[in-house]
Amino acid sequence: MIYHGNRFTLKPDVAQQDVEEALESLRNQGRVIPSVKSFVVGRDYGGEFEWGATFVIEDLEGYWEYLIHPAHRNTDRVGLPLVDKFVSFDITDDPDPEMGAKIAALHQRRFDSDPELTKLISDLDEYSGSAAPGEHGR
């Protein structure tokens, strides 16, 4: 299993209506993307971030489906312009020592095929995570 997580803090001037739209879009990802086995979206406690989301995905094939699904792309479109700081991470019980590189390669493939997404990510004040633009080349 792969537990894909996001932690983020929003810009201070974001309207509550926009916050709710972005959070609902994250929840919708969990409901409609077939490869998502379970998910949670909500407040992030115990760190420097305000919000978080975790999606449980069975394997790399499902991870790719998750990354390119239109529901995920909608969240990028409505949510990323609101974000100040963002981090993504993955936890897996898969024993493959190359799993981290394989996950990063999926993210990089997505960035390489979607210049608009890459710009949205690059415009964030702070972003780190799997194949973050700038970490593995733009």
Score class of each variant (00 low, 15 high):
Arg109Met: 15
Asp125His: 14
Asp93Cys: 08
Gly129Pro: 02
Gln108Asp: 15
Gly52Leu: 12
Glu98Arg: 09
Ile91Pro: 00
Asn74Thr: 15
Val83Arg: 04
Leu106Val: 10
Ala104Val: 10
Met99Asn: 11
Arg109Gly: 11
Asp90Trp: 04
Asp96Gly: 03
Gly42Phe: 02
Ser122Gln: 13
Lys102Cys: 01
Phe39Glu: 01
Ala71Thr: 08
Glu48Arg: 12
Ile68Phe: 06
Ser113His: 07
Phe86Pro: 00
Tyr127Glu: 07
Pro97Asp: 00
Leu80Asp: 09
Thr75Pro: 08
Val83Gln: 05
Arg77Cys: 09
Ala53Pro: 00
Ser38Asn: 14
Ala101His: 13
Leu82Asp: 08
Ser35Arg: 07
Lys119Tyr: 02
Asp94Arg: 00
Thr118Gly: 06
Arg43Thr: 14
Gly79Tyr: 05
Ser122Asn: 13
Glu126Cys: 11
Thr92Phe: 06
Val36His: 00
Gly42Met: 03
Glu58Met: 03
Asp123Pro: 04
Gly100His: 05
Thr118Tyr: 08
Lys102Ala: 10
Glu58Ile: 02
Ser128Thr: 13
Asp84Gly: 03
Pro133Phe: 05
Gly129Trp: 03
Pro81Arg: 11
Ala71Gly: 01
Thr75Ala: 15
Val36Lys: 05
His69Glu: 07
Gly52Pro: 07
Ile68Trp: 03
Val56Lys: 13
Arg77Lys: 15
Ala132Tyr: 04
His69Arg: 01
Gly47His: 04
Lys85Gly: 13
Val83Cys: 09
Asp93Leu: 15
Pro97Cys: 00
Gly42Gln: 03
Arg77Met: 11
Val40Asp: 10
Trp64Glu: 14
Arg73Val: 14
Gly79Asn: 07
Glu116Lys: 12
Asp123Met: 13
Thr92Glu: 04
His107Met: 03
Ser122His: 04
Asp90Thr: 11
Asp76Val: 14
Val36Thr: 06
Thr118Trp: 06
